[in-house]
């Protein structure tokens, strides 16, 4: 599939006769159709712009009434409100990424290089199945099934590895803590990281792999010396795509985490963290216009963070596929 998609654009460029441009302009049908097409393309620009503009307009009241701007001690400090949320969001997403990336790379290698050829496609399909499950169902599963099952593990970590700051503190059942939320997030971002890494691994030049094998390399040595160096940038950008998704995921956090507001590193403690998205979802139902403005401001922050991360990831992908 990838070969045919990559091969088609080249003949397209040459085969377009130069005079069509002048002739198509005369026909009204062509004018309308090209107008619609170009208009749709521009609409994409417009949509992203509108998202940024409307979020900014709606969060202006919060910015204007913030203590940092007005100097009023009674006013809400926007920074104090947003910073713990950003911390919780990034913390949960990074934890999820740390759990998901090794597993995802393992699965991608399994499907591309280890599984029997005939089983590779159905096994890949099973991982894609995970991506088809709606996030709210993941939340339900995490809240009902996963939370009690992780409790013994957390108690063990807390008892024996409690000297590590991450596992310190006093966990209490039910374990609706940041660790559980990150586990659910990790499961949710697994399919996308796997899918992108698998594609990259499959594009490793076949001759290089065969050369390595012919030199007597074991399968692991082939992967270490040929496949992984080739696929490194792909894995990096896949991870960033996963990070972007984990940052913006709402339901898994909302339904699994019992919220708090702090910069605590203790991921096993309940009621310490919250994420931007989950906070918006839980607060918006009964929000006064003031609160809503603040929520929209946090949403704008989230938008900017994910935009930057996705842009970097896509740029890395684009550069690695062009070269």
């Amino acid at each position: 599939m990838s070969t045919s998609a990559a091969a088609t654009p080249t003949p397209q460029k040459q085969s377009d006769p130069p005079e069509t441009k002048a002739r198509t302009a005369k026909r009204p049908g062509d004018l309308i159709f090209s107008g619609l097409s170009i208009g749709s393309g521009l609409l994409i620009f417009l949509t992203l712009l509108l998202v940024a503009v409307f979020l900014t307009i709606r969060s202006l009241p919060a910015i204007q009434s913030s203590r940092e701007v007005t100097g009023d001690a009674d006013a809400v400090s926007l920074l104090e409100y947003t910073a713990p949320l950003v911390f919780g969001t990034v913390f949960a997403a990074v934890l999820a990424l740390l759990m998901a990336v090794p597993v995802a790379v393992g699965i991608a290698l399994f499907i591309s290089h280890f599984a029997p050829r005939r089983l590779a496609t159905p096994l890949g399909f099973m991982i894609d199945l995970l991506a088809a499950v709606p996030s709210v169902v993941f939340g339900l599963w995490g809240g009902v099934w996963l939370v009690p099952r992780l409790e013994p593990l957390y108690m063990w970590l807390n008892t024996y590895l409690g000297w590590i700051p991450l596992f310190a503190g006093e966990p209490s059942a039910p374990m609706r803590n940041l660790a559980t939320a990150s586990v659910v997030l990790a499961v949710m971002i697994l399919p996308i990281i796997t899918a992108v890494s698998r594609e990259v691994f499959l594009q490793t030049p076949r001759l290089q792999e065969e050369a390595a094998l012919a030199l007597g390399a074991t399968r692991f040595e082939t992967i270490r010396t040929v496949v992984l160096p080739f696929g490194r940038s792909g894995v990096v950008s896949a991870s960033m795509l996963g990070l972007g998704r984990a940052l913006g995921e709402t339901m898994a956090v909302l339904m699994v985490l019992s919220p708090g507001s702090s910069f605590s590193l203790h991921i096993l403690e309940v009621g310490r963290h919250n994420s931007i998205a989950a906070n918006i979802a839980s607060q918006s139902a009964e929000a006064t216009p003031d609160v809503m403005a603040r929520l929209i401001f946090t949403g704008l922050v989230l938008f900017v963070i994910t935009f930057v991360i996705n842009a970097i990831a896509r740029a890395v992908v684009a550069r690695s596929t062009q070269g």
């Binding site: 795509l241 913006g248 931007i276 998205a277 979802a281 929209i296 949403g299 935009f307 684009a318």
Partner: peptide
């Protein structure tokens, strides 16, 4: 457009909701 579409794929769903609301 291709670049922006790619980036748009990563818009958090909650931000899309906020956009609808703000609009």
């Amino acid at each position: 457009v291709t670049f922006l579409v790619d980036v748009m794929t990563g818009i958090p769903s909650i931000v899309a909701g906020l956009f609808g609301l703000a609009l």
